[in-house]
Computed example of a mutant assay.
Amino acid sequence: MRYVVFNQKGGVGKSTITCNLAAISAQQGRRTLVVDLDGQGNSTRYLLGADADAAVEGAAGFFGESLKFTVRPKDSAEFIMETPWEGLHIMPASAELEELHGKLESRYKIYKLRDALAQLESSYDDVYIDTPPALNFYTRSALIAAQRCLIPFDCDDFSRRALYTLMENVQEIQADHNRGLEVGGIVVNQFQPRANLPQRLVQELIAEGLPVLQPYLSASVKIKESHELARPMIHMDARHKLTQEFLALHEEVARPA
């Protein structure tokens, strides 16, 4: 299954959700790939730690290759590297993605990622694509390449307002480019059950018939420690409440439609 984690708002936990779900997939014996399309490289640093600085060309190299004419183009697998976690690989991000954006968009390379992941289908059971906080070339490429879209929601009124536009954007991609894309659900992140606003916002989304997934991911300082140590929760503290929530969420998002 190919998942895209998408929200045009920054700071909603896209990289955290991407990496933790991917780490669980790999830990459960599934061959798993993370594709980091965000030039900030948060997923890359989360999974590689200090080794991120010595990473292969990754996503920038892959897209850069599509702008050249070569007799022997590199195979997509050459832009992928192992992480410290067995069965988990990554196509890392770098700042060069921003430099390539305009050229890729003008030369309509929007289907390149879809084609590459189709070629890698026999190598990976699951692919998780982390996207930048914008509806740009990379995000559209990811939505076109994916089968299921997960939408992080951080219990903020600005996020709620952006959610409707985001759903419209996904529907447009479905209609024009990828009829197989489905909304896997809204992932509630940084949830505080004792606070009134998060509870009210989530209940309103449910009342509107939007596909809100359970369980909700709790707000926890442990996730910041996880980022700092470059260890996904399943590898840092398997018994922690948040880890258990990620495990239950993984089971939910992996269910057949």
Rank of each mutant, 00 (worst) to 15 (best):
K224I: 07
A55P: 05
R239K: 15
F6E: 05
E105L: 11
H101T: 01
V4E: 10
I90N: 08
F6N: 05
S122N: 13
S43Q: 05
P215I: 04
V35H: 05
E225Q: 03
N42D: 14
Q8R: 09
N136C: 04
V127A: 12
S141Y: 06
D154F: 14
S159L: 05
D38I: 10
L205S: 10
D156Q: 12
P73T: 04
K222G: 02
F62S: 01
R231Q: 13
V188L: 03
V35R: 04
T70P: 06
A93Y: 03
G49A: 13
V127G: 05
I144D: 00
D157E: 12
K9T: 08
Y164L: 06
S218N: 14
L166G: 11
V183N: 08
R200Q: 13
N196G: 02
I129D: 07
Q27R: 09
K9A: 07
D176A: 08
E86K: 14
F62M: 12
L47N: 03
V34W: 06
D126M: 13
Q147H: 10
L163R: 08
A207F: 04
D36L: 15
F191A: 05
E208H: 13
I151T: 02
Q190Y: 09
D176G: 10
F79P: 00
Y164I: 04
I129E: 11
R160D: 13
E252Y: 14
S122H: 15
K109T: 02
G41W: 07
I234H: 01
S25Q: 04
T131R: 07
F191C: 02
E168I: 02
L120M: 13
T139D: 00
A248G: 10
Y124E: 15
A248R: 12
L47H: 06
T131C: 12
R255Y: 00
K109F: 01
R2A: 08
H235C: 05
A116W: 08
Y164N: 02
